[in-house]
Amino acid sequence: MSTLRTRGRRRAALLALAAALTVAAPIAEARPGGGGSMGSRGSRTYTAPSATPTAPGGGMTMQRSQTAPSPGMNNPGMANPGMQPSGRRFGGGFFAGLLGAGLLGALFGSGFFGGLGGLASMIGMLFQVGLVIVVVMLALRFFRRRNEPGAASYARTGPGGPAPGMGGPMGGFGGGAAGAAPRSPQMRQVQIGPNDFQAFEKLLGEIQDAYSREDRVSLSNLATPEMVGYFDEELQGNASRGVVNRISDVKLLQGDLAEAWGEDRTDYATVAMRYALRDVTMERGSGRVVANGDPEATELWTFQRQPGRGWVLSAIQQTR
C-alpha cells in the first residue's frame, strides 16, 4: 500500500514539474515580438539596420517577413547594393568571344579564313570586320533598350541626397534595390523631427499596453496587419498554455534614429530604443506568476507612414 502511495506521489511530482516546464520554457521572452526579428522594412527588409549609439552592433537580419526576397532586394550580406558592381560588362560572354576573334583576325590578317591567301584572305578579313560592326551595333542596341525609362534599375537617391545605404541620425537615408516589381521604388529622403520621436515613444507604450490587455482592435490601429498577425499568434500561444503576459511601467531610457527613407508614397523610420519594463507571465486562472521577463530591452523598431496617416509599427528587430 505504501509502495502505491509512493509511486503516486512521484507521478504527481513529475506531472507538476512537466507542467511547470511547459509553461515556463516558451515564455522566456514574452513581450511583443517574443525577442525575435519580424516584419517588413520595404526594400530594406533583408538588410540589417545601421548601428547607432543605442545599438552599437546594429540590428539582426529579419527572421520572419511576408516580404519575399528577390534578386534585386537588399539581401543579407549586401549592405549597399547600389554601390555593388552590376556583374554585367560591356561585350561580356558570347559577344566578347566574337569580338576577340574578329579583332585579332583583322589585326593579324588571319582568323576564320586564315591561311587561304590572296583574295580569300581579303574576303575573310572583310567578313570579320563586318561581323565586328554587326556585333557592336547589336550590343549598342541592347544597352540602349536597357537604359530606356521604365526598365529595371538600381534605386536612385533624390537630388543632392546621399548614396543608398548611408544611414544616420536625423534624416539618415537608407537606399535599396528593386524588389520583385518591374521597376525600382522611387527613393527619397525623409526628415525626422521631435514630433516624430514623440510619436515613436508613444507607440512603444501603447503597443506594449494593448498587447498586455490582448486588445487586438487597438493593435490593429497601431501596427501593420503583418505585425498584428504575429502578435495574434503569440497571444494564441499564451492562451493555449493557460497563461497571460502582463506588461507595465514601460519607460524609454534611450533612443536614436538608425535610418529614415521613403519609397514611393510610404515613409519608413527605423529607431533603436532601450527601454525599461515590467514583464510578468501569470496563470490565467489563479494569477500565479510563472515567469519574469528581463527588466530592460534594446530593440530596433521600424515604423511606416502613409500619406494622411500616422506612424504604425511595421517591424521589430533584435540587436546584435
Rank of each mutant, 00 (worst) to 15 (best):
A210M: 05
A28W: 08
G193K: 08
T45W: 04
G205C: 09
L131W: 02
A106P: 00
D267F: 02
V250N: 00
S153H: 12
I123G: 06
L222W: 02
F143W: 12
G179L: 01
T298K: 03
L14R: 14
G168C: 02
P194I: 07
A291P: 00
S248A: 14
M62D: 01
Q254I: 05
N238R: 11
S286N: 10
G150Q: 09
L17Q: 13
G262F: 00
E283F: 06
L252E: 05
R265W: 09
P149H: 05
P53F: 06
R146K: 12
M166K: 09
P307D: 08
R305V: 05
G34F: 03
R183T: 15
L131H: 00
G167M: 05
P164M: 07
R7F: 12
S220A: 13
G171P: 02
R144I: 12
S40M: 08
S86T: 15
A163L: 14
A152W: 11
E234H: 10
E214D: 13
L222I: 07
W261D: 03
G34K: 01
Y154E: 10
G100Q: 06
F231N: 02
T270K: 01
T22E: 10
A101I: 11
T3R: 14
R265A: 15
T61F: 07
L98P: 00
L313V: 09
A96S: 15
N80T: 15
P71S: 09
T3Y: 10
L14D: 13
E233G: 14
T54R: 04
G285P: 02
Y230K: 03
N221Y: 14
M137F: 15
T47D: 06
R309G: 10
G93P: 03
P185L: 07
S218P: 02
V129R: 03
A96D: 10
R305Y: 06
A276L: 07
R145T: 12
A68E: 15
L140P: 01
T3D: 15
K202Q: 14
R188C: 05
S37K: 03
F90T: 09
A48L: 04
D256F: 03
E296S: 12
K202Y: 10
A155F: 01
G229V: 05
E263K: 04
E234V: 05
N74R: 12
G97Y: 07
A199F: 01
R41P: 01
S240T: 13
V312Q: 05
L138N: 10
N292P: 00
Q186A: 15
T319K: 01
T281F: 03
E148T: 12
A269V: 04
P56V: 09
A101V: 11
F231I: 05
I192C: 02
L14P: 01
P159M: 09
D215Q: 08
M78T: 13
T302Q: 04
G59S: 08
A51G: 10
